[in-house]
Design a protein around this nucleic acid. Structure first.
Length: 105
DNA sequence: CGGATGACGGGTC
DNA sequence: AGACCCGCCATCC
């Protein structure tokens, strides 16, 4: 556990219900644009530090559910998003521009 | 202890 | 348009 992880989790906690953001946007927000990969890795371990984190609201820049296999079941991520009103088709968030939430505000 | 490994993304060709 | 490259760095084994 380090400061970078804590900041990532802090931002993820702030994502409004029914909205999503991207790994890169979070990294950019933390002043580490090129470290989007680390945000992804932080999310991989997130359940270990804070299982209540809305990790399903973080997707890649294309609105693709790349992290779905890290949930309890592969369809868990999509179900959670759909329960918040987000439409997912073929692992892809529809209308991505409209549900995207900028973590930097 | 060191190399492989990623829930990524911007750039190049 | 699409394939490929490479920085990034905490963890894993």
């Amino acid at each position: 556990m380090n400061e970078f992880y804590l900041k990532v989790y802090e931002i993820v906690r702030q994502i409004p219900k029914g909205r999503v953001t991207t790994y890169g946007a979070i990294a950019k927000c933390l002043g580490a644009t090129r470290s989007a990969r680390l945000v992804g890795y932080a999310m991989n371990l997130s359940h270990r530090y804070d299982p209540t984190l809305p990790a399903h609201r973080v997707v890649n820049r294309n609105g693709l559910l790349t992290g779905k296999h890290h949930f309890e079941t592969p369809d868990r991520m999509q179900k959670l998003l759909e329960s918040e009103g987000i439409i997912v088709k073929n692992n892809q968030i529809q209308n991505f521009e409209n549900v995207f939430w900028n973590p930097c505000q």
